[in-house]
């Protein structure tokens, strides 16, 4: 009747986390014979009586409401097929792509051509992982200029940081526009040097994502590279 791991321990699949019925199995865990086991390689997180594992690697799992970045790979009768960097493609239908009226015989490639990148939001996920996305909300648009880099989707929360602290830090020091998709695709736009530095910084975060105090380490790195320290990089309390 006890717990055998600590918060933030690294566990491997099949490793026992707790014994007895005092604890409940949360995400990425399962119970068998009164014991709770981990199902993935990850970090233990204990929330009251619930044991969860935060994966250290692994594929992106679609959730409605997630903002993702994808590439248009095909034009269909009434929409576009979007490559998402996972095993599944997403569907962007015509009425979800643009608020303006699209004529019946209009050439859809004039709105989005094959090879374009888009920032979209997941609206629907079925059991077979058929994905519907929309581009009609504020902040969703076609990608113009800049560059796209890809990281493991499990590291996205660290790249954003608590209340966006990490991403604001990088934005402030590199003067880049940065849009992070939950699927691990990141769009950077700024000066070539700024983009380069931002890409480097994000790669470092991806590698060291399981460490604590990463924001401070990244601030040191960025200050040493740009040669200037920026106080109060966090935006005012207005954004979401």
């Amino acid at each position: 009747m006890s717990i055998v791991v600590n918060e933030r321990d690294i566990v491997i699949p099949g490793e026992a986390l707790a014994e007895g019925l005092d604890f409940l199995p949360g995400d990425n865990t399962y119970r068998e014979n009164e014991k709770i086991y981990s199902k993935v390689l990850g970090l233990v997180s204990i929330a009251g009586r619930v044991l969860k594992i935060t994966p250290l690697s692994g594929p992106y799992i679609f959730k409605p409401g997630d903002k993702i970045i994808g590439e248009v790979i095909d034009i269909l009768m009434s929409g576009w097929r979007i490559k998402t960097g996972t095993a599944y493609t997403a569907m962007l239908s015509m009425q979800d792509a643009s608020s303006r009226f699209i004529r019946k015989d209009e050439d859809l490639s004039r709105i989005l051509a094959v090879g374009d990148y888009v920032v979209v939001k997941v609206t629907k996920v079925t059991s077979q992982n058929l994905i519907d996305v929309t581009m009609k909300e504020p902040g969703l648009h076609k990608v113009n200029g800049g560059r796209i880099i890809k990281i493991n989707s499990q590291k996205v929360p660290r790249v954003i940081g608590k209340k966006g602290s990490m991403i604001s830090l990088i934005k402030a020091h590199t003067n880049c526009d940065i849009t992070v998709g939950q699927n691990g695709l990141i769009w950077l736009r700024g000066t070539p040097e700024g983009e380069q530095l931002a890409a480097e910084a994000i790669k470092i975060i991806e590698q060291k994502s399981h460490q604590e105090g990463l924001t401070e380490k990244m601030e040191q790195f960025l200050v040493s590279r740009t040669g200037k320290k920026i106080e109060n990089y966090m935006p005012e309390e207005s954004s979401e």
Partner: peptide, 11 residues
Amino acid sequence: LADAGIPMKDM
């Protein structure tokens, strides 16, 4: 497989 983050019951 574990390193790839594939869900596994055990090793």
